[in-house]
Design a protein around this nucleic acid. Structure first.
Lengths: 280, 280
DNA sequence: TCCCATTATGTTATAATTCTACATGATTTC
DNA sequence: GAAATCATGTAGAATTATAACATAATGGGA
């Protein structure tokens, strides 16, 4: 991952990063560009340009067109962070989980959503659903996603910005937390053990989760199957604090059984319950 | 040019117009589509779909991609608000103004940036400049933009989310304001009169501006020429509170003279100083 | 009503592009 | 200093796009 610096002589080739940045700069300035033009501009082969453009397209930083690329007005912050990749991982499962989570929401409720990618998926559905809701979050992205809904009121915790999750943590966020009390808090987690609870690697994020878990009437955990059976740095809450676990059909059945026996409500998204038929 | 209506029997082929409309509808709903999918969906040959897509692409209604087409307006994603349009208006001027504003920033400083589109432009430059800075803002977008810089610390005010500006206002934001004191506050404004000061139409946004103006050692106003000579609902601060005004070369000279005589520092971006030549 | 001009569509062949696999040189790591 | 990793380039295969032509359908006239 370390950037290569091969400064040889005469014309110093650009590093991968700066070359990709120049591609974006050029697109921003000109709107669109062909591969040929990029080859000349950057002094590399067609294949290298294509590979760069592929990387940037995967991050939605640009749009691939026929013989080249076109500027995308998706703001820069999204592709500079690892966030867009996190959103892309297991996207189908996350969407299905979010869909099931939506059914746990009633109009007029007050919700908390953390900054996880699964909650981002839920936020999109909430915005579409046009419920009258109050949504509290510490995620800048969720604030913006839900904010497009004219029927939802959005409140965001301030604080130190964490670029990894695009959310706010720290003293300011913690102070803001204690002013609220919500009906349902939706959270995801880095790792989850059915016998022990949910784990988090970032201490700052952990404290927000803990505070909001205490301040919610109902705590709903959204976890796709990849989270099961792992442990991480610190435990957020014990298993007893969790009211409902929403997961996908690929999760280990044994683990779900443990949860049910422990008294948790378990929702397997896309599993037994038939998906509602899409309104024709 | 007359649309053909060949309603024969059984399966009624769509007219050209309604077929193209369906292509756009499908793209708006799904984001992107392949030619194959369109063929099946519309029951026509590959070539017909391609011709339709060509027509629509010429109108910028969609973007042609490799095996299909993509919706052009970056759908389903972030702000469907007026924000992206606000950013686009007078973009060149805003970039130039931001460039000049950047020169007023020293490493190690603490800055405040409001949620204006000019400040968003500045935020991008700050992130690129890789200064060691602390940036306070009430804009979700600026938090994310500056947040990509590994050298900058970003603090965001929380509060009620305003989708028009993608920024936070209200009681929570006001409470957070009073905890800070910054070296320089950069703000823009809806309207600006050189004899009177800056104006704002939203009361909630106004209060944040007022509070942060009081809490900055230096207040820098970023205004493109279109803001001059207008008045709006409420005055944010009197002209005396403003230390520096950064504007573009199209601003009325008389107004700038008034400002200079009143003791303001006036920076005309892209004026006397030569732009750095673009690397060929 | 018939015929012709026009438009719309489908088919095929050809040209261009994109993707895949592999080979090479550079850089880092142990 | 050697192995592993990464970045890049080359060439051929697969896919896709374009162009040219053929056919079918419509709309006006005569």
């Amino acid at each position: 991952m370390a950037p290569r610096k091969h400064i040889i002589g005469g014309t110093a080739p650009l590093s991968v990063d700066s070359r990709q940045r120049r591609i974006l700069d050029e697109l921003q300035a000109r709107g669109s560009c062909t591969y040929r033009e990029f080859e000349k501009l950057l002094g590399v082969s067609s294949m290298t340009v294509r590979r760069d453009v592929d990387v940037l397209a995967k991050r939605d930083a640009l749009i691939k067109t026929l013989g080249g690329a076109q500027y995308s007005n998706v703001p820069q912050f999204l592709y500079e962070t690892a966030l867009s990749e996190r959103i892309a991982v297991n996207r189908a499962e996350k969407d299905i989980i979010a869909d099931s989570a939506l059914k746990l929401v009633q109009p007029q409720q007050t919700l908390y959503l953390d900054g996880s990618s699964t909650c981002i998926a839920l936020a999109r559905l909430l915005a579409k659903a046009q419920f009258a809701l109050t949504v509290i979050t510490n995620s800048a992205i969720i604030a913006m996603e839900v904010g497009v809904s004219p029927t939802a009121k959005v409140l965001c915790l301030g604080g130190d910005y964490d670029p990894q999750s695009a959310s706010f943590v720290g003293v300011l966020a913690e102070e803001a937390c204690v002013k609220f009390f919500v009906d349902t808090a939706f959270m995801s987690t880095k790792a989850f053990l059915p016998e022990e609870g949910m784990f988090e690697s970032s201490i700052a994020a952990l404290r927000i989760k803990q505070l909001m878990a205490q301040r919610s009437a109902k705590l709903v955990l959204l976890v796709d199957h990849s989270k099961f059976g792992q442990r991480s740095l610190c435990r957020v809450v014990a298993i007893e604090a969790i009211h409902t676990v929403v997961t996908d059909a690929k999760s280990p059945r044994a683990a779900l059984e443990v949860l049910r026996k422990g008294g948790r409500q378990v929702v397997v998204a896309g599993g037994s319950e038939p998906e509602e038929p899409k309104a024709a």
